[in-house]
Simulated scan of single mutants.
Amino acid sequence: MQVNWTGVFPAVATQMFEDGFIDYDMTATQIEALIDAGVDGLVMLGSVGENTALEMDEKIAVLKLAVDLTKGRIPVLSGVAETTTAAAIKYAQKCEDLGANGLMLLPGMIYTADTRENLEHFRAVAAKTSLPIMIYNNPGAYRVDIKPEEFNQLADVKNLVAIKESSGDPRRITDIYNACGDRFVLFCGMDDLVMETQVLGAVGWISGFTDAFPKESVGLWKLLSEGKYTEALAIYRWFAPVLHMDVHAKLVQYIKLAQAMTGVGKEYVRAPRLTLVGEERETITKIIQKAIDTRPSV
């Protein structure tokens, strides 16, 4: 199926057992809960999906599960986060073979590429697959910042179609548009900037905390897309303390703890990540519990 590049695309967590092995049954349950809530697509194996902590055969198994389970009801994208361009090409081609509908392509991991190297990485991967690709720009996490004018240098690559903008600067939405026109579809990539970036022109949201609060996330986006900003603002203000945790280095632990507390997942992660303990756990639990206790009607 073709990807309709609009709406809420949760960055789906890869569910684990306490020993760090993948819980495929819970991953499937989570996917069904997201579909039931009305999400518009799935992004498997992104940062929240612990892509870089998984072996290649595990990534393939998780992606196959998602493709088989959705049965074309909504599009399934896979994150591509490899350490070399050759490995990224190999995985992208495997995604296409498995029936994925698109890719979310990250810069090469570990090595911090310069602009020329980074743009060539995107070009090289795109040239070896027919799948549509969303470029993921997250300089805070991955140390590579793709500037608006640099995106314009990729405008001739037809299957580079969308941008997940996670620089943390909502002005980038306007700057990308001014540099590239409407060449690329723009997605919000940080949960706590969803309202700001939607107003500025983002037409979709790659969201982490949709995993834990799927109905509220879909409801918020619906209000925003309908221009009902007063109603949306009330939900956004309720949600904001939770959404701020999406930009923390431990976003995976925070999201998974929220999933466990809302009954749509488990908190277990794969080392070197560890589940939360002590004062940090108490602080995060209080924020999540307050959101649960004061959930708005959507």
Rank of each mutant, 00 (worst) to 15 (best):
M1A: 13
Q2S: 11
W5S: 03
V8P: 01
F9H: 04
V12L: 01
V12P: 02
Q15I: 02
F17T: 00
G20E: 05
D25I: 00
T27H: 07
T27L: 01
T27F: 01
A28Y: 02
V39L: 04
V43S: 04
L45S: 05
G46C: 07
S47E: 09
T52P: 03
T52I: 14
A53M: 14
E55P: 02
E58C: 07
V62P: 09
L63F: 00
L63C: 04
L63W: 00
L65E: 01
V67H: 04
D68I: 01
K71P: 05
P75Y: 11
L77Q: 05
S78A: 12
V80I: 15
A81R: 12
E82C: 11
T83F: 14
T84W: 06
T84R: 09
T85Y: 10
A86H: 14
A88K: 09
A88T: 11
A92M: 12
Q93I: 00
K94I: 04
C95Y: 01
D97Y: 12
G99Y: 02
A100C: 02
L103F: 02
M104S: 05
L105H: 03
L106R: 07
L106Q: 08
P107S: 13
G108A: 15
M109D: 06
A113E: 13
T115K: 15
T115V: 15
N118Y: 11
S130N: 15
S130C: 12
P132R: 10
N137D: 13
N138P: 02
P139W: 01
P139I: 03
R143A: 14
D145P: 08
E149D: 14
F151R: 01
N152Y: 07
N159F: 11
L160N: 06
L160D: 07
E165L: 13
S167W: 11
D169Y: 14
R171A: 15
R172M: 15
I173A: 05
G181V: 13
D182Y: 06
R183Y: 00
R183H: 02
R183V: 06
L186V: 08
G189K: 10
M190A: 12
M190S: 11
M190Y: 12
M190N: 15
D191Y: 03
D192E: 07
V194I: 14
E196F: 01
A202W: 09
G204Y: 07
G204F: 10
S207P: 02
G208K: 01
G208P: 05
F209E: 10
T210D: 02
T210S: 13
D211C: 10
D211M: 03
D211K: 00
D211S: 11
S217T: 15
K222D: 13
L224A: 04
L224V: 08
G227D: 10
K228G: 00
Y229F: 15
T230D: 14
T230A: 13
A234C: 09
I235Y: 07
Y236C: 02
W238M: 09
P241Q: 15
L243M: 14
L243E: 07
H248K: 12
H248M: 13
K250D: 14
L251C: 12
V252M: 04
V252T: 09
Q253P: 08
Y254C: 04
A258Y: 03
V264Q: 00
R270P: 00
P272Y: 04
G278H: 11
G278M: 09
I284C: 06
K286T: 08
Q289C: 06
Q289W: 03
D293K: 05
R295D: 03
